[in-house]
Amino acid sequence: MATQTKPQSATDRSTAFKWSMVIDLDRCTGCEACVVACQSENNVPINEESAFIEGRAFEWIRLERYWEGEWPDIKARFIPVLCQHCENAPCEPVCPVYATYHNNEGLNVQVYNRCVGTRYCGANCPYHARQFNFWEPVWPEDLRHQLNPDVTVRTRGVMEKCSMCIQRIRRATRSKTPSDIPDGAFNPACVQACPTSAMTFGNLNNPESKVSKLQNDERRYHMFEHLGTAPTTLYLKQVDTHGA
């Protein structure tokens, strides 16, 4: 029978966990299983047609597609984009109410009940990872039965974004030490759903974790490296052997 360990203090936790995600673009097919899994897990509002026309669709993780070349020598390249959980997050210092801050586990955290809706953070995020609730999100009564009870349904006037499924992190790490949590024991919803295993999540403070080892992969890169945001999310480059 497992014994309960004493919950660690915040200081202890800061040395215990540093969460990170690695996305291998060579495995990604653009299927968007991650997108819908995230919406289901995190009570992301349903995007009606008008949300797309107005450019206000809510996707904590979205799939972007870029063209390269011209017909017939053309490529469509996909990249899932989510909050990069930057070490030097441009969104954090501009928040006048500390609604967004960097926690001691490497996550860029959004505190909904502090947010007063200035939207400075959204304007400052170069990854367009943040979405603002201009209106009260509405679900038909019956569909509310599906909502995840672990996740707040945000209200009008509040900024929201990827939390790296913090509710899952809290659930998995509560009263546990890192050694109690095997690498890959739990995952954010997007990582869990990804059919090609393009996404990997884990603890950077564990040198044996897969994410730690991938930090040295020859294909590693950070999105918009030149901005100096120092993202925690790492991408592995797509491989192109065109015509080989």
């Binding site: 673009l25 063209w67 390269e68 390249r77 996909f78 294909r219 890169y221 999105m223 797509q238 491989v239």
Partner: peptide
């Protein structure tokens, strides 16, 4: 959306 030469969002490894 097109990849920008010099600053691509999706970096390609050849």
């Amino acid at each position: 959306p097109r990849q920008l030469p010099g600053e691509p969002v999706i970096v390609v490894f050849r």
